[in-house]
């Protein structure tokens, strides 16, 4: 099996090309320097700014692996930031560790509940995931604004600032958080049987049922974890700017997170998931954003590129596309079950 067949080959090449191409515009792109005991450089920026996306994408990976999707993560991020800053803003000493920890606990606890809500709608009530999570996607930002009373809450709390904007051991604290979530997710899911059972449910729900797997709990867990991840990411973003903007925190994050997961090779229909792939996907998206910023192109042009990437990734994943392009290599192993799906040409026989 050649290296080009590895599922991380193309995403990896894409990431490398993006990174290297930066050198042409910013010769110092790969430089790292120490200043005031902190490490600075473009690479550090990419990882730090990409940390919240990575965390959301890790949660999304599990939801997608079950065959679902979570559209509400952006709104949950906004709620999380709103809950935490609202609590901190009301403290007499905004920098008190206990107060900040309480705020963080409240925010994450609330987000766990929101994840549970999504999970219940999908696994218990039986609503399609896209639609079930759409409800929170629509209402969530309203809830966040309700909490902040429609204002942008600003806090002055170095302790809170640490989460998304602080440094530890010369590196941004956000990086440690992201690594911690990634490692936690990988260890929990791969050391226990969770990962395999989720892949089984996402890969073939009926076969899993007949093997005696109780999928309901697994699906619930995936949505709860996704809610937790979105909550943590929301805290990081709000902490980085020491404020909570209910309107804009986490806007379009659901789409970026889905994109990161898909670039990483996890199929949208569920089944096998790849956390390392998600890492590469999230870094690619962040590198792209950073590159476009440093080159000086309008930052929003990233959307065009994302459109292109989504399109290409989908085509590659589409069996119909593969069948059309690689017709000789891909032959069905069994007679097709359904009649040909092509539009029928009318030709009355002689």
């Amino acid at each position: 099996m050649s290296i080009t067949r590895h599922r991380l080959f193309y995403p990896g090449v894409l990431l490398l090309v993006l990174l290297v191409s930066n050198v042409f515009f910013t010769p110092t792109f790969f430089n790292l320097r120490m200043q005031d005991g902190h490490l600075y450089g473009s690479l550090i920026d990419i990882v730090r700014n990409g940390a919240p996306l990575l965390i959301v994408a890790v949660g999304m990976t599990f939801v997608i692996a079950t065959g679902g999707i979570d559209l509400s993560v952006g709104a949950v991020m906004a709620i999380s930031g709103a809950v935490a800053t609202h609590h901190i803003a009301g403290l007499s000493n905004q920098d008190s560790t206990a107060g900040v920890l309480t705020a963080v606990g409240m925010a994450l606890g609330f987000c766990l509940l929101l994840g549970l809500w999504n999970g219940i709608l999908v696994a218990v009530v039986g609503i399609q995931p896209i639609i079930a999570t759409l409800i929170l996607m629509v209402a969530g930002r309203g809830v966040a604004q309700w909490i902040t009373d429609g204002q942008i809450i600003t806090v002055n709390s170095p302790a809170y600032k640490l989460i998304g904007g602080g440094y530890k051991l010369a590196l941004p604290f956000a990086i440690f958080l992201a690594i911690a979530v990634l490692v936690f997710a990988a260890v929990i899911s791969r050391r226990s049987a969770l990962g395999m059972l989720i892949e089984s449910v996402g890969g073939n729900a009926e076969a899993s049922r007949l093997a005696g797997i109780r999928s309901r709990g697994l699906i619930l867990l995936a949505y709860v974890f996704s809610g937790f991840c979105a909550g943590l990411a929301g805290l990081m973003i709000s902490s980085n700017v020491s404020s909570a903007d209910a309107n804009n925190t986490g806007l379009f994050y659901e789409l970026d997170a889905i994109l990161a997961v898909v670039i990483g090779g996890t199929a949208l229909i569920g089944g096998r998931y790849f956390l390392v792939g998600t890492l590469v996907g999230a870094l690619t998206i962040q590198t792209l954003t950073t590159t476009i910023l440093t080159i000086g192109i309008n930052p929003n042009a990233t959307l065009l590129f994302k459109a292109f990437v989504v399109f290409v990734m989908c085509l590659i994943q589409s069996p119909a596309f593969r069948a059309k392009v690689f017709r000789r290599r891909q032959r069905p192993a069994s007679p097709p079950a359904a009649p040909a799906s092509k539009e029928q040409h009318v030709r009355v026989p002689a």
């Binding site: 789409l255 065009l304 459109a307």
Partner: peptide, 12 residues
């Protein structure tokens, strides 16, 4: 993808 494309074109 269409949404990304159209919105990206807006900003372009």
């Amino acid at each position: 993808a269409g949404m990304f494309l159209a919105r990206g074109l807006c900003y372009v």
